[in-house]
Design a protein around this nucleic acid. Structure first.
Length: 574
RNA sequence: UGGCGGAUCGUCUAAUGGUAGGACACCGGUUUUUGGUGCCGUAUGUCUAGGUUCGAAUCCUAGUCCGCCAGCCA
């Protein structure tokens, strides 16, 4: 069995089963897949699923993989997207160390086959299987019929081969205005499958193409172009999402009539995620309305957004593995994705201490000129990450939430008269609470037990909580961007259009707290961390350094919080 | 009311006529100088109704519900 890694169990899903059968039956003697994005938008997590199916099948069967841009509509496409998609693809597939065995890292372009395609269109005309049609868009829609009513033949359907050849050549030569004529396949206007009711193959559009420039004024439609692109590249398995299922008869028809190499199209269900939206159109609306800062806003489900949020390509790959491959329409819970981030970051993130909501603690029995350094573990999951030293001193900052003047039941942290462990340092007892004029707690006066530095107390007493801290005079001031779900409703798209106002209905479900910007006080060891570096702020969450960081001020994005058992307990109590 | 496709724990999925299993979420326990991680455990599911069979999630029949299709978008 030609698997790239014989040790790995071959994943079983209906696509891979079909591919196995094709190899066993001799229908194909190799496997070659492709991912065919249109360069008109940024890639999102749904595309990542498709890429990992397309690429993953090629990899599992020891085959090849192409990235091919489906660039047949110059009015929507742009070089900006080509560049962004290539960058995203390289990032995504870098999760496979063997990627070079299956993908050469290059991009192909459907538009490079325009000449060959034009010739094949002429072949179809010569066979009497395509004709030039003068119907306007409105007339064509009317003649197409409906779901329950058959269409009627175009009055131009029976032009002679010679006339069609001549007209088609003149269409290409630019003799007719935009939209005035089309080349259509002659199939069946009464077909119950609307896709087969004489579909348009070419339309006239004088638009500047991002690669072809102004060389063409006729552009092929998806159905006519896609199968041919696959065929020309020797693709064996053309994997796509379910909405193309009804196009498969047309995909097959073109290839059969032409008698060219015939790939097999197989369709799978696209990815949907709760608490977000997943369409180009909605991305554009969110960006244009200023609801997010751009396509790489860390709250967006784009690959650029996920990357900036702190997701590694490995975490995205694991997510795609977990959601599987089926034909059932589904909506995956966002928690699935978040768990993949936690699992990945737990393994790789360096631990540091940072306080997001500080409360000043003065240690009254600690020599106020003394700074000592305590030893801290960089990553308990990875001993090779080593140790570091963290400064400790007489005035520290702890998290407001780690102190309660009146502790609720089961609260193990600091309160008047109780004792907690300061991570990597001493046991700390709260002796006195200092308040301002409004009664707000502004400072704690505490004492440490000198016998407990990195050791349990000699008398054997236990504390139930360990809290994090930073030294007041050496902490780095940073910005922390705390992200949450973009939408508070799990299924914002369920309520799409708002009849009364012009605003799309799903916007009503946006989470007003999807971004909170706070000041963070971080231990000095993170000074100079490069953008993209990932950390766990102990007991708080996973953070990565944003590209907005400067030498003067670090900016952190919260990728995901840590699981918070106490928050659950407290929620139940209230 | 045309055609195509789909339906298994709350969610995503496995089981291809032979013990309905896993992951996430949830709940409980345990370990822990992160209320993190790890480990253990509880609970929850075959759309419905018939049929075939020693035995059905799986095969058959009828129904129900869901998704997609009427761009010169992809």
């Amino acid at each position: 069995m030609p698997t790239s890694d014989p040790e790995a169990p071959v994943a079983t899903d209906f696509v891979r089963e079909a591919v196995s059968e094709d190899l066993a039956s001799g229908r194909f003697d190799r496997v070659h897949t492709r991912f065919p994005p249109e360069p008109n938008a940024y890639l999102h997590i749904g595309h990542a699923k498709a890429v990992w199916i397309d690429y993953g099948v090629a990899k599992d069967f020891g085959g090849r993989f192409n990235l091919r841009f489906d660039d047949t509509n110059p009015e929507k496409e742009d070089q900006e997207f080509v560049d962004a998609i290539i960058a995203d693809m390289k990032w995504l597939l870098s999760a496979d160390p063997d990627v070079h065995r299956h993908w050469d890292g290059q991009a192909l372009f459907g538009s490079d086959y325009f000449d060959r395609q034009y010739e094949l269109a002429q072949e179809l005309i010569k066979k009497g299987l395509a004709y030039v049609c003068d119907l306007s868009p409105d007339e064509m829609r009317e003649a197409r019929g409906t779901l329950t009513r058959p269409g009627v033949d175009s009055p131009w359907r029976n032009r002679s081969v010679e006339e069609n050849l001549d007209l088609f050549a003149r269409m290409r030569a630019g003799e007719f205005p935009d939209g005035s004529k089309t080349l259509r396949a002659k199939i069946d206007m009464a077909s119950p499958n609307l896709v087969l009711r004489d579909p348009v193959m070419y339309r006239i559009r004088r638009a500047h193409h991002h690669r072809q420039g102004d060389a063409w004024c006729v552009y092929p439609t998806y159905d006519w172009a896609h199968g041919l692109q696959d065929s020309i590249e020797g693709i064996t398995h053309s994997l796509c999402t379910l909405e193309y299922e009804i196009h498969r008869p047309l995909y097959d028809w073109f290839l059969d009539q032409l008698g060219v190499f015939h790939p097999r199209q197989i369709e799978f269900a696209r990815l949907n995620l709760t608490h977000t939206v997943m369409s180009k159109r909605k991305f554009v609306e969110l960006v244009k309305a200023g609801k997010v800062s751009g396509y790489d806003d860390p709250r967006m489900p784009t690959l650029a957004g996920l990357r900036r949020r702190g997701y590694s390509p490995e975490a995205v790959r694991e997510f795609c593995r977990r959601v599987g491959v089926t034909k059932a329409a589904s909506v995956t819970e966002m928690y699935q994705l978040e768990d993949c981030a936690r699992e990945d970051l737990n393994r790789r993130a360096l631990r540091v201490m940072a306080v997001l909501d500080p409360l000043r603690v003065v240690i009254t029995n600690y020599d106020d000129v003394k700074t000592e350094w305590v030893e801290a573990v960089n990553n308990p999951e990875d001993p090779s990450a080593g140790m570091r030293r963290v400064p400790f001193g007489p005035v520290i900052l702890i998290e407001q939430d780690d102190f309660r003047e009146e502790p609720p039941p089961k609260y193990f942290r600091l309160s008047p008269g109780t004792e907690v462990r300061l991570r990597y340092a001493y046991l700390l007892r709260c002796d006195e609470v200092v308040k301002d004029g409004e009664g707000q707690v502004v400072e704690l006066r505490c004492t440490v037990d000198p016998a407990t530095l990195g050791a349990n107390p000699p008398d054997g007493r236990k504390v139930k909580a360990t809290i994090h801290w930073v030294v007041a005079d050496q902490a780095l001031e940073a910005e922390a961007r705390l992200f949450d779900h973009l939408f508070s409703a799990p299924h914002p798209e369920a309520e799409d259009s708002e009849p009364d106002s012009g605003e799309p209905g799903y916007l009503k479900h946006m989470n007003p707290d999807s971004l909170r910007v706070v000041k963070a006080l971080v231990e000095p060891s993170v000074a100079g961390a490069a953008p993209g570096s990932v950390f766990q702020f102990e007991r708080v969450g996973y953070f990565c350094v944003d590209r907005d960081s400067t030498a003067e001020k670090l900016v952190f994005n919260r990728t995901v919080t840590l699981r918070d058992t106490w928050a659950k307990i407290e929620k139940k109590l209230s």
